[in-house]
């Protein structure tokens, strides 16, 4: 049995994330916590999050988790989801500009309207719904998931990693955007695996069985 910590810094719906992980790891201990000692005691870490970047960064700081997160992400398997993906970067332009954790080089930007598909169809913002994710690398977390499978998205800001070799998944939404990254023991994604039906559950199952080596 392993211990999986879902970090609770007060931003967003942790119920679905923790239930989805319990669903794929029924024999493991899933804890939802902001306690640094408990998080450090976990074998793997999931960092979800919803809401505005400034609020998320403030909440991470208020819960005393900033330096711990920077410390810990490279030491065991770490999964960032949605805002838990965006906050890993250097900076977000949301809320007039917010410094993020700077764990992964890059910027978070707002979709610039108007967006269109190559066929000329108008695309809405937020990007809400199921889009195809093209796998940029082979990775244990993609195991058993067909390339270009659809995952569920709900976001108005997108990440631009500064190093292309960190990108593990792309999606086309007006332009090519990096929707997941993989670096060492970190895997993080813009989409919601906990809301992406079978492919999402497969991804979570892969994560809970992953040794953290790319």
């Amino acid at each position: 049995m392993q211990r999986i910590a879902v970090i609770d810094y007060g931003m967003g719906n942790l119920h679905s994330v923790s239930k989805a992980i319990e669903h794929v790891a029924p024999d493991d201990e899933v804890i939802v916590t902001d306690d640094e000692a408990l998080i450090r005691s976990a074998d793997r870490i999931v960092c979800p999050g919803q809401g505005a970047a400034a609020d998320c960064m403030a909440a991470i700081s208020q819960h005393g988790l900033t330096s711990m997160l920077v410390d810990i992400v490279d030491t065991r398997p770490f999964l960032g989801i949605c805002m838990g993906y965006q906050v890993l970067f250097d900076h977000s332009e949301e809320n007039g500009g917010v410094d993020c954790l700077g764990i992964v080089g890059g910027q978070v930007k707002r979709f610039a309207a108007p967006l269109h598909t190559p066929e000329g169809e108008r695309l809405k913002v937020p990007h809400m719904g199921w889009s195809q994710v093209n796998q940029a690398v082979e990775h244990p977390v993609w195991h058993g998931i067909t390339d270009a499978s659809r995952f569920y998205f709900a976001h108005s800001y997108f990440c631009q990693p500064s190093q292309v070799e960190h990108v593990s998944g792309y999606c086309d939404y007006g332009h090519k955007i990096a929707v997941s990254i993989a670096r060492g023991s970190i895997f993080a994604c813009q989409f919601h695996p906990e809301k992406s039906a079978d492919h999402g559950l497969q991804l979570l199952q892969n994560f809970v069985g992953w040794d953290g080596v790319q």
């Binding site: 719906n13 679905s16 709900a154 906990e194 809301k195 039906a197």
Partner: peptide, 28 residues
């Protein structure tokens, strides 16, 4: 807890606390 696709809930929302309670219960 059992169905892992997005879930929207409407009806009877009056204040922000109603929104929060539904999201905390697992609504997206």
């Amino acid at each position: 807890s059992e169905v892992f696709i997005p879930l929207t809930v409407g009806g009877g929302i009056r204040q922000v606390s109603d929104v929060r309670r539904l999201l905390n219960a697992g609504a997206d």
